[in-house]
Design a protein around this nucleic acid. Structure first.
Lengths: 214, 214
DNA sequence: TGTACATCAGTGAACGCGCGTTCACTGATGTAC
DNA sequence: TGTACATCAGTGAACGCGCGTTCACTGATGTAC
């Protein structure tokens, strides 16, 4: 029962979407092809009609997850530019929230799969490299506009790298202790939020984030 | 061929040590019992004489890796206290080096297995929670002594959390892109080094790190 | 436009393989007398 | 202290299971004439 080209392409995309979620939840090695296909509503025999290997799907799923995140971040920051609202603050608070910590499947691909990526193939790492470069570019563009007058000793690019590392590190730490020590987990998130946001107001090495619209 | 109690305990410890290395290299799901026992010099049938499950070994291996790291960090920082050398700088430069990035097996357990830990049992997360609490305490003690005069707006504890998140995040990012984009990987490490060390000299929100012995 | 055939996304069963775990057995160590 | 027996760390083979991958088959779609 051959399908139309459009339907087949839709199905392929749907497999990638649900795989992206499952991989983030359970890791690249923590979920099998049968589960991945079942979650997309198919039997697993047809997998190789769409992908050459599990690894190929992992690479595409990572790319998609990173692309989606970056679009959302970009929209949040640019939205703030227009309305004058505290867009970086909004983003940081969302990223370092307990909701994000507790919902890996719909969250940041780097925080979920960053460690895994370091052990995977060059192909998968290429997906991460592209996604990370894009995210850094988005942050750097924001800092270049917002932080230009503040005279930080660090370039917009340096601030972007620092921000990303802090966000990813804090969420990974918070998740690593969430079940055994929820208070510590909350403290890590809360502290990182305060650190990134307070510092951006006091020393201005990130950017000025007004409380309300100016 | 029953062994003496001492020899049996030695063997058990040896299994944990080599498992700690292998888990860091390949992840909790990336290495099997047969490989773990073989690396320790045994056949895998005897595994359950020492551990109740693979998970129990993972938990012990994580504990050991974290304890070893913390002892080393503690020694480095306290050594610097006595000699007056720039001990935090030394530690940060070692942690954010390409050597550490390229040698997971002998490196930081949090940076290697932090993401995995978030998906594992409460038992394993308890090992991480204990190790992370200890590491934060070591950093906080350092900042409390070294940073007391500087009047940072952040508590020693807050500075410790920020430092750990930055270190872990930077190494994970650097590893995630190492094969596909080595220049970006190097840039992330270098930038994080500069950020942590320069800021500690300019804004003093971490601690003062003299270039040479005062 | 209509017909004949090739294509291919899907199904469901099977493949070999390695996984975590179990077990019968060995024989030196530890223990009870 | 010496003897008899229980203990248990190790071996090597086996267990059922799920893994990634392959394959024969189906039948609607796409294509060539």
């Amino acid at each position: 029962m051959r399908l139309s080209k459009e339907k087949a392409a839709d199905n392929r995309q749907h497999i990638i979407e649900s795989a992206s979620r499952l991989f983030r939840q359970h890791g690249f090695n923590g979920v099998g092809l049968a589960d991945l296909m079942k979650a997309a509503g198919f039997t697993h025999g047809g997998f190789y009609n769409h992908f050459s290997s599990k690894e190929a799907l992992a690479s595409e799923a990572a790319s998609l997850g990173l692309k989606r995140s970056n679009l959302k971040i970009s929209a949040t920051l640019e939205d703030g530019e227009k309305t004058g609202s505290a867009s970086l603050k909004k983003f940081v608070e969302r990223y370092l929230s307990s909701e994000h910590r507790d919902n890996r499947g719909s969250g940041c691909t780097i925080a979920s799969l960053g460690c895994d990526a370091g052990r995977e193939s060059k192909e998968i790492q290429a997906s991460f490299a592209k996604g990370i470069e894009e995210e850094l570019a988005i942050f750097a563009r924001y800092f270049a506009k917002r932080g230009a007058k503040e005279g930080s000793p660090f370039s917009a690019r340096a601030q972007a790298i620092h921000l990303l590392a802090q966000l990813v590190g804090a969420v990974i730490l918070a998740r690593a202790v969430a079940e055994a020590n929820p208070l510590l987990s909350d403290e890590i998130l809360q502290n990182s939020r305060r650190y990134l946001l307070k510092r951006s107001r006091t020393t201005r090495s990130l950017s000025r984030v007004p409380k309300k619209q100016a």
